[in-house]
Design a protein around this nucleic acid. Structure first.
Length: 610
RNA sequence: GCACCCAUAGCUCAGCUGGAUAGAGCAUCAGGCUUCGAACCUGAGGGUCGGGAGUUCGAAUCUCUCUGGGUGCACCA
């Protein structure tokens, strides 16, 4: 008997395409689609184009092809203008369960030899993480995981906002309101509202200084000069400014790392933020100068004109006073990464409000070195803002929603549900954390990243419907069945030791495929297999679209299909024969593995009980 | 004013890059737990795909235009 792992959907697909090649004129488009449901089949060939080329009716062509072609292990059916390939239930079961029970990760790609940089998260020093930062952080994390899973080498960079004029603001504010009575930022300020216990950190107090400065600056514009003066001191290497800067950076980074740990997100380095490029900008400016790209702008600034590439706003590289700007650092960053990493693709996960800026930077780099910065090498992955029902969030104004508050609230709500539904559960706190995180992270991924999101508590931390916890619930139910089944069943769906920061693969040992899979003939079981079969293309789509959305949606489809299977196909009940029981348990193992792996790529855990 | 993004069921959104009868969740209504976990499942109602024109065998998808929203537009990042 063929062991399942020898049977692959890829082979079937190739055989189908080979058969089509023989029957159609050379050069015909052989793109195959996924039918809408398993009743139609497993692979679909739309006949429209080929029919047109042959001067035939598409439905007629589909019928002709169905009658003349043959593919081993499958039947070919004409369904209107489509030629569908449908596997037998036996073949479909063997193929998918077999793949998922092997020790090779289902849907993963072979090493591509490509090196991809993903720049994401990139928070500004001295600001607290808001719900807005979750977008860049988790979109980036998902991209890292998916690219790795599909075989790319990935370098994870955090372009920390640890330089720039906002440090003038911080330094000035610190000197004005902190140095005298609260130099080490260990005490609450007497001028500020009492902070909740959990926020009484030095970083939070820095944030309070920042907010106060911008409030007072409205009333007293002279403060602005004070801030500029401090930034100049920092740039010219003033010892005190440097010392404070370095300290601010340190306390910020400590908080950031704590949150990244909570999110399960990691980076290859934190040392290549904006400050890292401070002394590398001169070379880049020099190079632009040498290339003859820098011209003098209206008020004396040095700019690169981009009119010829369709960008009407020129890119300012050097301010009239000789200072650098954001673009200067980004250009130096681009040049450094070219020389240092020799990558194939660099993905910038940065908000949509910076589209123009990114276009400018990419355009200038392209002018500087057209041979290296080819099309597609630099990719901006913009995403929509998270807004509040009452409008835009603003760190300066202090009307923000902190990420930790969202995660905490989600955890509390989950805990309340656990107390109600499963009060005996052990490790309640850990499970609540995993589910709360699942709700928030999944919500962030479920919708197209380019669209703006209005933050509403009840939607972000929702626990039923199209949510992370729905997928996690399906997984927990499976594990519960597997535990009750005894033997090695639960172990088969339990991964070996792994660490999310090391790689994208959830490691499972090879398990034995039952000989008799007749227990999977029910339509609900076949529908579940069909959705499992959709996962590999969801992974590829996620890589192409640079977002985890397709994965989230396919996981929902799998979880939903599992619920249908679970309610209609008894597994451990007396009415089920031993052979059917084993087949269904094997499908449970396969599904649990698929769900856990998919969630893991998104940065979400799958508890065994909830 | 100019540029980019968005508009699909009462609400929030999918719709695999031009293809099969436009699908999910929430909400509403009607059902389903002495039986593997009801954080679940089954069913119902609900649509001029913002308006208009065009491209072709075929458009929610591509082009143009109008309307309504969002985001930007050189000395902040």
């Amino acid at each position: 008997m063929a062991s399942g792992s020898g049977l692959k959907m890829e082979r079937i697909r190739e055989a189908f395409q080979r058969a089509l090649t023989g029957a159609l004129p050379p050069g015909a488009d052989l793109t195959l689609e996924r039918p809408k449901s398993v009743e139609l089949g497993d692979l679909a060939y739309p006949c429209f184009r080929a029919a047109k080329a042959a001067g035939k009716n598409p439905a007629q062509l589909a019928q002709d092809l169905a009658a003349s072609l043959k593919v081993e292990g499958a039947e070919l059916l004409a369904a209107g203008p489509y030629l569908n390939l449908r596997l037998t239930a036996e073949t479909r079961s063997r193929l998918l369960v077999g793949s998922l029970l092997s020790d090779r990760p289902f849907g993963a790609g072979p090493a591509s030899g490509r090196r991809v940089i993903v720049e994401y998260s990139s928070p500004n020093i001295a600001k607290l993480f808001t719900i807005g930062h979750l977008r860049s952080t988790m979109i980036g994390h998902g991209m890292v995981q998916v690219h790795r899973f599909l075989g790319d080498e990935v370098i994870r960079l955090n372009h920390l906002g640890d330089w720039g004029t906002q440090f003038g603001t911080l330094l000035a504010a610190y000197k004005l309101w902190a140095e005298a009575g609260n130099a080490d930022l260990t005490k609450d300020f007497d001028w500020a509202d009492d902070a909740p216990e959990k926020r009484r950190s030095p970083l939070f107090r820095l944030f309070q200084l920042y907010v106060r400065f911008h409030a007072e600056e409205e009333k007293d514009p002279a403060l602005r000069d004070d801030a500029r003066g401090w930034f100049r001191k920092l740039e010219t290497g003033d010892a005190e400014a440097r010392r404070l800067w370095s300290w601010f950076r340190e306390i910020s980074l400590a908080e950031f790392k704590r949150l990244y740990d909570r999110l399960g997100v990691g980076f290859d380095t934190f040392e290549e933020g904006e400050a890292f490029y401070e002394d590398r900008m001169a070379d880049t400016i020099q190079a632009l100068e040498a290339a003859g790209l820098l011209i003098e702008g209206d008020k004396g600034a040095r700019i690169v004109d981009l009119e010829d590439v369709g960008i009407k706003t020129p890119c300012m590289v050097v301010k009239a006073d000789g200072g650098s700007v954001y673009a200067t650092r980004d250009l130096a960053t681009g040049v450094y990464r070219r020389d240092h990493y020799k990558y194939d693709k660099c993905v910038y996960v940065i908000g949509g409000e910076q589209i123009l800026h990114m276009q400018q930077v990419f355009a200038v780099l392209k002018k500087l070195d057209p041979a290296w910065f080819t099309d597609g090498k630099l990719v901006h992955t913009p995403f929509g803002l998270i807004k509040l029902p009452e409008g835009k969030m603003s760190t300066r104004k202090g009307n923000v929603i902190f990420l930790e508050d969202v995660l905490d609230e989600a955890r509390e709500r989950v805990l309340a549900v656990i107390e109600e539904k499963n009060p005996e559960l052990k490790d309640k706190a850990d499970v609540a954390e995993a589910l709360g995180m699942g709700a928030v992270v999944f919500f962030n991924a479920i919708n197209d990243r380019t669209k703006a999101i209005t933050f509403e508590w009840d939607r972000v931390v929702a626990l039923d419907g199209d949510t992370g916890p729905y997928v996690q619930y399906a997984h927990a139910r499976i594990m519960s069945v597997l535990r009750k089944a005894g033997g090695t069943w639960a172990a088969q769906a339990t991964p070996g030791a792994f660490d999310g920061r090391q790689g994208p693969v959830v490691p499972y040992a090879a398990a034995e495929l039952p000989v008799d899979l007749a227990g999977l003939e029910a339509p609900e079981a076949q529908a579940l297999l069909f959705e499992l079969a959709g996962l590999p293309s969801a992974y590829r789509m996620a890589q192409e679209q640079l977002q985890a959305t397709p994965i989230a949606r396919q996981l929902l489809a799998v979880a939903r299909a599992f619920s249908g299977f679970y309610t209609n196909c008894p597994i451990l009940k007396d009415e089920t024969s031993p052979a059917d029981r084993d087949a269904r348990l094997a499908l449970c193992v396969a599904t649990a593995r698929a769900l856990r792996q998919g969630l893991f790529l998104m940065g979400i855990q799958a508890p065994d009980e909830m």
